[in-house]
């Protein structure tokens, strides 16, 4: 239990800071819980901004550069919020790769003029790749928002994305 560090108030009145504080308290404000805390921030706020990292640094007594180092080491953490209406995740794991995942990816990149890891210019679609979604038996797999398309091909994925976008309009 850390007792030598004076507790500092959260950056704002936002109720979500309580969740972050609860996580840190559960581990006795020990520096070891840095990754758990970052998970908690990422889940509550969608990304890790400077303000959050300053708060965690002061509360857990972990140097700023160390937090930045950890936050950028793990791919799950993001420093900038992603703001897109829809997310399309293409699995590019081995099974999906063998069964044409890469073809689907390049077809989507071409059709919607977006690169993996980026959002379309109009902000409607965020395209992402995943290392393996673990549904290899149903390869190739694409996840559109919450919906999983298994044994997918470029035509049905593109069609489905267009449907979803049209539905918004």
């Amino acid at each position: 239990m850390k007792t030598d560090i004076a507790r500092i108030p959260p950056p704002s009145d936002d109720k979500r800071w309580r969740i972050i504080d609860t996580t840190m308290r559960r581990y006795g404000y020990d520096s070891h819980c840095l990754i758990e805390t970052l998970h908690s921030v990422q889940e509550a706020f969608g990304s890790l901004d400077d303000q959050a990292m300053h708060y965690i640094s002061a509360t857990l007594g972990v140097p700023l550069s160390q937090i930045y180092g950890v936050a950028t080491f793990y791919h799950l953490f993001t420093l900038k919020p992603r703001e897109a209406h829809h997310t399309c995740v293409i699995c590019v794991g081995t099974s999906c790769h063998i069964k044409g995942g890469a073809t689907i990816l390049s077809a989507i990149e071409k059709t919607f003029r977006v690169k993996a890891g980026q959002t379309t210019a109009d902000g409607t679609l965020y395209l992402q790749t995943a290392r393996c979604l673990g549904s290899c038996g149903l390869a190739p797999v694409v996840v559109l928002n919450e919906e999983t398309l298994s044994k997918a091909n470029q035509n049905n994925v593109i069609q489905r994305i267009q449907e979803i976008i049209r539905h918004d309009a």
Partner: peptide, 24 residues
């Protein structure tokens, strides 16, 4: 970190993209 005990520096990113950085 070990001598000056400031821990201003650390490594950010990973693999061939890694860079030493100061603070955030």
């Amino acid at each position: 970190d070990e001598i000056e005990r400031a821990h201003t520096w650390d490594v950010a990113g990973r693999g061939v993209q890694a860079l030493v950085i100061t603070d955030l």
